[in-house]
Design a protein around this nucleic acid. Structure first.
Lengths: 342, 342
DNA sequence: CTGAAAGCGCTTACAG
DNA sequence: CTGAAAGCGCTTACAG
């Protein structure tokens, strides 16, 4: 037991002494410097493994003036999305000496940028992953450049240097949803969007409407209702669309939460899904299969997105971006859509 | 701009020099030592505020041999639960110099304890929050003691020193669910439980059955079905309970996910909730209001739990536990229960 | 390819 | 109540 405790207090000095090289050489090995003879490296690495040596990230961080922490900055999206993004980032960090530090924030509050600044600056973060909608805030990004903090932005479209972006192509995902509804024969469709302040909203809306337009179908203004990406706002929007004179045969919602609102209104009004109304969501969250009937939805591969973003942050500086810094959404068909009734 | 950058490179030496005291005195002020004259403290603190000085956690961590990081270790609970727990912990950490590092793990994998060990040891974590079911693993806790890492366990019942426990009283929550069903007039009730390997399962089951027994009602074995806390397992369990000869008038599920499974089976079988079947869940997750009809469920106050756990970790060592290291669950009534039909 | 010196920004004994 | 010295475990110039 005391031996175990001791063995964990091994330092770079012990490794240097025991393997008969200088401390600097050990340091070079830790940092993968090419300036070490292969046999020296092998010998020292074997010793490190044998005694279970791992360099102290605090000491390295102090000397580097940069910690071994990756921050994730996000502004209140749904729980499943946040957790998936975290899992993805952790996938990429596994086996490295980096850890993930979470920083939810409220971009509507006046001093949230200051909060992120303190977070990044005080802990000398290696880099931060910016999740929408925080990733869309130019002022936030400028602050990060100011304090010289690396970042990767996740967003629907390119908004920055390609080495600092993961593109989620929301436009394509929404277009695929439109094509799917068209393929079932729907012509009278409606759309419940997120807040127009979100880039994802603009992209999903444009992608959906453009795909319809290409097939000669235009959606009247009253069939496009802005909501807030929340269940409650989806409910209110669904009431507008479903309780009037003519109702659409299909509704596309900007996320699954709002689709749940449509379900609730339809149930109350005695409208059968999918017989009388088709619904397609966006996110493919766990909620999609919980709903009855299970919800057809656009999968975003959030975990892949998080993994890619974290991997980019681990790239040595100056290195080019990864091959594929983008993630493609696609429709996952379940039970909430069918051809419209005659 | 360059001035701004400079102002952030202020060190303890600058503060000492500018305020005419020794570095050690500044250190005492940072660490709230009582051994500083009040006027000295005020003067130095004013200067620190003026120049925007914040001590470097990496340097402090190196000298303290302990970082300013709190780890959260959890084993795959639902997304909403994880996020709520994180938010709670962050509530407690706000304004401190501590940050939250997340560490999901899989307690079924052989080397997960080693993974937590490396996590805690290498980064010299200040402490870790253990979320169920990881918190129930005695081997994990012993490893943490071994490496002298502080921890707080979140669990349904006391399993450790009270200064290292947040008790969630699942037994009481389940008893309240039983009392609620009884008050509506239900006598023929069934139970879908989580895995019996979970302490929460045992507590919720016992709490529910004991409350019924007190009123003279015993639940036959075939009315108690073990499932896995997942949607799919809830579905399978519901099929057993609902598709046979006699079906119960009410079902209590160990969490909301499994309640969603009951909903799906009931819908398929044409059983109306709540008219023909009452359902009550546990968690009061966001899913509860998304379902139709909205689900009555036992709220666990997860955010409070996380906040309390983190606050305990910030207590100076040797200090007594906080006043209330426990969180009380209670039933939140929605639309999924009503008196049984005659 | 390898090494001895100085330093990263703090704190811990040890004195006074 | 305050301070000068040594050290936490690494890395960065600078030499060779």
């Amino acid at each position: 037991m005391s031996k175990k405790a001791d063995s964990k207090t091994v330092t770079i000095n012990d490794i240097a002494r025991l393997s008969g090289v200088s401390k600097k050489t050990v340091s070079r090995i830790i940092n993968n410097s090419p300036l070490v003879r292969k046999d020296t490296r092998d010998k020292v690495e074997a010793l490190m493994r044998e005694v279970g040596y791992a360099p102290d990230p605090l000491a390295r961080g102090l000397a580097f003036r940069r910690s071994f922490l990756i921050g994730m900055v996000y502004d209140n999206p749904t729980a499943q999305y946040v957790v998936d993004m975290q899992y993805g980032a952790l996938d990429a960090l596994r086996g490295s000496s980096f850890e993930l530090v979470v920083h939810p924030c409220d971009s509507r509050s006046a001093d949230y940028i200051d909060g992120v600044r303190r977070f990044a600056q005080q802990h000398k973060l290696h880099g931060v992953i910016l999740v929408p909608r925080a990733s869309e805030d130019q002022a936030l990004v400028e602050m990060l450049r100011d304090i010289d903090c690396r970042y990767v932005r996740i967003a629907a479209v390119p908004m920055d240097d390609s080495s600092q972006m993961v593109i989620t192509h929301d436009r394509d995902g929404a277009a695929e949803a439109a094509d799917y509804l068209l393929s079932l024969g729907h012509r009278d469709v409606a759309l419940i969007t997120g807040p127009v302040a979100y880039r994802s909203t603009l992209e999903r809306t444009a992608g959906f409407l453009d795909a319809l337009r290409k097939r000669g179908i235009s959606v009247p203004d009253e069939r496009v209702v802005e909501a807030g990406y929340t269940f409650e706002s989806g409910l209110a929007a669904a009431e507008k669309l479903l309780l009037g004179e003519h109702r659409p045969t299909a509704i596309f919602t900007g996320n699954d939460e709002m689709a749940a609102g449509v379900y609730k209104v339809a149930l109350r009004a005695g409208i059968d899904i999918p017989r009388e109304l088709s619904v397609i969501g966006y996110d493919d969250s766990s909620l999609a299969s919980r709903l009855s009937p299970s919800l057809t939805s656009v999968r975003r591969n959030t975990r892949d997105t998080g993994r890619t973003a974290a991997a980019m942050l681990l790239q040595p500086e100056g290195q080019g971006p990864l091959a594929s810094a983008s993630v493609r959404p696609h429709v996952v068909v379940r039970d909430s859509c069918q051809p419209p009734q005659r």
